[in-house]
């Protein structure tokens, strides 16, 4: 495991280790009693189309700022102890990790709610765009539920 302390909000090209990120967040507090993890991965089918690969791009500075805002608001509004949000950009193959959100609370209930809210808010407010390569060509995805 890396000994370098990483920021809890990151946008990066390289893959991440879910286990390392959980262990890092657990160090935030000895009062953490429950962690909820959302891991988004590249799937092969979208609306019946077979996807060969994915490509993500973001608006530097603004995307990081929005993720920071989500983390701060989640901690404040849902009374959780801490949260990590990591999103990858660049080329991503099917099955690879895309996005990780970990909500850590004293109890499970607030962590579940905060985690679900955070991924919805990420999709709504964060300037990140996905391009799918399918058998019919390249498509910029407009939005997904």
């Amino acid at each position: 495991m890396s000994t370098t302390l990483q920021p809890k909000v990151r946008i990066q090209r390289e893959d991440f280790s879910v286990t390392d990120e959980i262990e890092a967040l657990k160090k935030s507090s000895k009062n953490i009693g429950g962690l909820v993890v959302f891991l988004g991965t590249g799937r092969e089918l979208n609306k019946g189309e077979s996807i060969a690969d994915l490509n993500f791009e973001h608006y530097p500075k603004m995307a990081e700022k929005k993720l920071d805002d989500i983390r701060v608001k989640a901690i404040k509004d849902f009374n959780i102890i801490d949260m990590s949000i990591i999103h990858r950009i660049g080329h991503i193959d099917i099955g690879e990790n895309i996005v990780l959100i970990i909500a850590a609370g004293e109890h499970r209930k607030e962590a579940f709610v905060a985690c679900e809210w955070a991924i919805a808010e990420l999709k709504r407010t964060t300037p990140i765009w996905k391009k799918e390569t399918t058998t019919k060509g390249e498509v910029w995805v407009q939005s997904t539920p």
């Binding site: 988004g40 991965t41 590249g42 799937r43 895309i98 990420l122 709504r124 300037p127 407009q142």
Partner: peptide
């Protein structure tokens, strides 16, 4: 100024 198409981050 950023011109922003609909976002599609996450999954």
């Amino acid at each position: 100024v950023g011109l922003l198409p609909p976002f599609s981050g996450g999954i």
